[in-house]
């Protein structure tokens, strides 16, 4: 057992970063601007990113309750919820969508997989923001961010590959709806612990999203594929929770209250 009190050190360094906040924030904003103004982003995506909010389409990432009119179109939630997905391959479901796919109807598995890869891409982007921000001062946290980011790249590649296998067009950009909803939080980041909290929320949302789709996907092979990634996101979350001084293993059963609904933003 290591007797060094890592957390005291983290907090001491986090206080030091406060003084650097004003200097670092412009870099963060630049990174955000890049994310929001990527070349090739469609009008639909931009619309989703700045879309008006509707109380009818709520989802949560961490403690942030998000809402977006664009989600209604993106989720196609009614049609999906009314479908009867089965694990025996007998049922096929299509959902009205908007976004980069540009299609009006996709299988529910494709939508689940596109949502999954969009979350992975968002995590990749978020860790890049963290790495580039100058706010992360603790070497171990920086190393963890790089490791987790590299694993999210692998996860995104898996989900994109599965999307193709399912006959869909892979979604290879950060989820615009979730990103838009998180932008105020990202803009307000002041220190390392804020970044860790954001990462924790994203990892938790990812883990719960994949879990929530188990038993829902039509292709039964995807159940294991989803949780081969979901388990790892839960591991990421446990480590980040520990850094935050929270329970690494929050419950005996993982919940799904932070899950991002399939179709959100894609």
């Amino acid at each position: 057992m290591n007797d060094d009190n890592m957390y005291d050190e983290i907090r001491r360094q986090a206080r030091d970063t406060q003084a650097m906040h004003n200097e670092a924030m412009p870099q963060l904003r630049d990174a955000m601007t890049q994310l929001f103004e990527q070349e090739g982003r469609t009008a639909d995506e931009k619309s989703v990113a700045v879309g008006a909010m509707s109380p009818g389409a709520l989802f949560k990432v961490g403690g942030i309750t998000l809402a977006g009119a664009a989600l209604l179109a993106a989720c196609g939630s009614d049609s999906k919820d009314n479908a009867s997905p089965s694990t025996n391959g007998a049922t096929t479901t299509t959902v009205a969508t908007s976004g980069t796919g540009g299609t009006s109807a996709m299988s529910s598995d494709v939508i689940i997989l596109r949502t999954a890869s969009s979350i992975e891409e968002l995590a990749i982007a978020a860790y890049q923001i963290a790495i580039d921000s100058g706010l992360v001062k603790t070497a171990a946290i920086g190393d963890a961010a790089k490791l987790f980011q590299s694993q999210h790249r692998e996860h995104s590649a898996l989900f994109q590959s599965e999307t193709k296998r399912a006959g869909g067009t892979p979604f290879d950009k950060p989820n615009p709806a979730v990103l838009a909803a998180l932008k105020p939080t990202i803009d307000a980041l002041k220190d390392e612990m804020g970044i860790v909290k954001l990462a924790f929320d994203l990892e938790t949302a990812a883990a719960q999203t994949y879990q929530s789709n188990v038993g829902v996907v039509i292709d039964p092979k995807l159940n294991a594929a989803l949780m081969s990634v979901g388990g790892v996101e839960a591991r990421h979350a446990a480590i980040l929770a520990g850094v935050l001084g929270n329970a690494a293993v929050a419950k005996a059963f993982q919940g799904a209250d932070q899950a991002v609904k399939a179709g959100t933003g894609v």
């Binding site: 694990t87 879990q211 038993g215 388990g231 839960a234 446990a238 005996a252």
Partner: peptide, 18 residues
């Protein structure tokens, strides 16, 4: 059964992390 198992797998993984 699938959802129950999927809700437990991450918890075992988190135990392993600790």
């Amino acid at each position: 059964a699938l959802q129950l198992t999927a809700s437990i797998l991450p918890v075992e993984a988190q135990h392993a992390v600790v």
